[in-house]
Design a protein around this nucleic acid. Structure first.
Lengths: 140, 140
DNA sequence: GTCAAAGTGTAGCCTGTGCTACAAATCGGA
DNA sequence: TCCGATTTGTAGCACAGGCTACACTTTGAC
């Protein structure tokens, strides 16, 4: 991340936000797993994302470096305050996108997959438009 | 691309489709530039995506390798038949997503940026739902 | 308590996408 | 025609994200 993200143009911003996407996905997944199981281990994330534990390991290192996650050798993975904030924000966006897709008639199974990809590219304005749509009385 | 994409799970598929996204973006951009200027040079793409010409160069090499693009040393960049097909498909999806966002009330400027990110994550089913929405008589 | 299974860490490899710096080619205008 | 500006090519670096192979801890069943 040599440029300061703020000074990036639209296109390069779109491309280089992959790191952020990954961070959001991980934060969301960790929050979810902790909620379900009490703690989250690396192997849970490996299974969740269907990648090797090595990849998870290094991603977690980056998240630790970026202050989103706490962990100890051979110990579980936990979100920091910042990580929790990120997870909650991602979750909020995710659920709006999901509900929205279902509202326009997409099958929930499809909507689940698509919303995971779409959520990272939805601006605040578009999210508001989706929320507004969901508030319409006519419904779907 | 060691795994055959077909055998990938949802999550890994989502992640590893970045190469495809880039290919679609380039195909779309090349088609657009050719339409506007007659030919497309590497420098046009560099300006379009706001990346260095070196990055464009190597990306084009990959597209050539993948049979989407034709080019010669110091020559312009042209799409192969496959590249044109990809460009057209991407363009179609892009315009549906853009029109859809505008239809639900998103500012066109915002919709332009968001649709570029979203288009790659929209399944055929979701695209159909968007098209169906656009066909509604009530309009927005 | 021991030992195997499960989980985690580390080394080393590949590809993709970004860059700077420098070299070579092409093209236009004087 | 020639020279400088533009464009393209190449070398080499960094980092993210994927992997396999192998080593080491933890944990649980016996």
């Amino acid at each position: 991340m040599s440029k300061s993200r703020k000074n990036m143009g639209r296109h390069s911003r779109i491309r280089s936000d992959h790191a952020t996407e990954v961070a959001e996905d991980y934060a969301e997944a960790i929050a979810e797993i902790v909620e379900l199981q009490g703690t989250c281990r690396a192997v849970d994330l490996a299974r969740h994302f269907e990648v090797s534990h090595v990849t998870v390991n290094r991603t977690i290192s980056r998240l630790v470096r970026d202050g989103l996650v706490k962990t100890e050798p051979y110990g579980p993975v936990a979100l920091t305050a910042g990580g929790k904030r990120l997870a909650q924000a991602a979750r909020g966006r995710h659920s709006v996108v999901f509900d929205f897709l279902v509202a326009i008639g997409v099958d929930p199974g499809i909507a689940k997959v698509d919303s995971e990809g779409i959520e990272h590219h939805v601006s605040g304005e578009t999210l508001e438009a989706m929320k507004a749509f969901l508030r319409r009385p006519e419904g779907r």
